[in-house]
């Protein structure tokens, strides 16, 4: 177990380094100059040069990268070119919103996806199964972006039940929660559709196994057989997909926050790329990558917790 943990930690660090190198390179290869973005196109070349020197942009790329790594390792992600405040501050301000959105999205995905999938499997071949699969087929086919607009048109513009976008801040928890309902729905609908499919097919496969027959022969109720015998054995593919969905949901917040005008990290990364705000982009990409890698690590731990047969084999 310690060996796994050590290997995992190394993989984690290597992934983050690779991701940061790529972002650094891409941001430098792309045309455009932060100095122009900040000062405007009618600024003088002297003023731009002065700003570049101030920002340290006149030094070679590799040196700037090493400098960044050195400070990042100490928790200092630099100062945003554009906002002129520490990147860490920018992120900590916006993190709660994005985290809430992602957590709510994952929770809805897991609850709705697994429930619908199990119901479809239990009602295999009936109208209920058919209806759930139709819903899930539609959910998979619809892009989250388009779905968001539909939701806004229906529930905000048409029915006026919910706000079309924006975020009132955390001082009003109820209003804050209300403004997250549509974004969460838009984020989770597609993912729960995917998860429902995976759950259904995995459960159908498990249902044919002998121990399910034993459970039925023991006189257990249908619901109990489903929940205590079929679902746990169907979990491995489900957990695999859920791990991938964490990545999808975290990156999905970028689109969703922009559609719904939510001041979170997704919107920040969007603005920062447009403003060529290297340090902010860099820190955000590393943060997103860290979340995804951590999710994958948790999935691997989950496998062993689910299936005792794997314990001996994982080294």
């Amino acid at each position: 177990m310690q060996v796994i943990l050590l290997r995992r930690t190394m993989g984690f660090v290597l992934t983050l380094i690779a991701v940061s190198v790529i972002v650094f390179a891409v941001m430098n290869v792309l045309p455009g100059d932060p100095a122009i973005t900040i000062l405007g196109i009618d600024s003088t070349e002297d003023a731009r040069a002065a700003l570049r020197a101030e920002l340290g942009l006149d030094r070679p790329v590799w040196l700037r990268y090493l400098d960044w790594v050195w400070h990042a390792a100490q928790g200092d992600f630099g100062t945003s070119y554009f906002f002129r405040v520490p990147v860490t501050e920018l992120i900590t301000e916006r993190l709660p919103l994005t985290l809430s959105l992602a957590l709510a999205g994952m929770t809805v995905t897991v609850v709705v996806g697994i429930t619908l999938g199990m119901i479809a499997a239990a009602r295999h071949g009936t109208f209920g199964d058919w209806a759930i699969m139709l819903f899930s087929q539609m959910g998979i086919a619809v892009p989250a972006f388009w779905l968001s607009i539909l939701l806004v048109l229906l529930f905000a513009v048409g029915l006026r039940w919910l706000p079309p976008g924006g975020f009132p801040g955390w001082d009003e928890p109820l209003l804050a929660a209300r403004s997250l309902i549509l974004p969460t729905t838009a984020l989770a609908l597609v993912q729960s559709a995917v998860l429902a499919r995976v759950t259904r097919s995995s459960a159908l496969e498990v249902m044919r196994l002998d121990f399910v027959r034993t459970a039925r022969a023991t006189g257990l109720s249908r619901w109990r057989v489903l929940r205590r015998h079929i679902l746990p054995n169907a979990l491995v593919p489900i957990v695999t997909i859920v791990g991938m969905q964490v990545a999808a949901v975290v990156t999905g917040t970028i689109v969703i926050e922009n559609v719904f005008y939510l001041p979170g990290l997704g919107r920040l990364i969007f603005q920062s790329i447009a403003n060529r705000d290297l340090f902010t982009v860099q820190a955000l990409v590393v943060l997103f990558a860290a979340i995804v890698v951590t999710a994958n690590f948790l999935v691997d731990i989950a496998y062993v917790l689910i299936d005792p047969r794997l314990k001996g084999r994982m080294t």
């Binding site: 196994l209 002998d210 121990f211 459970a215 022969a217 023991t218 006189g219 054995n233 299936d307 005792p308």
Partner: peptide
């Protein structure tokens, strides 16, 4: 049927490994 399974009639099967929940 559920009410009499296990309590009045019980059944065991051929493949004992497959017949037990592995988890």
């Amino acid at each position: 049927w559920r009410a009499i399974r296990a309590r009045k009639v019980a059944m065991i099967f051929q493949e004992p490994l497959a017949a037990l929940n592995p988890l």
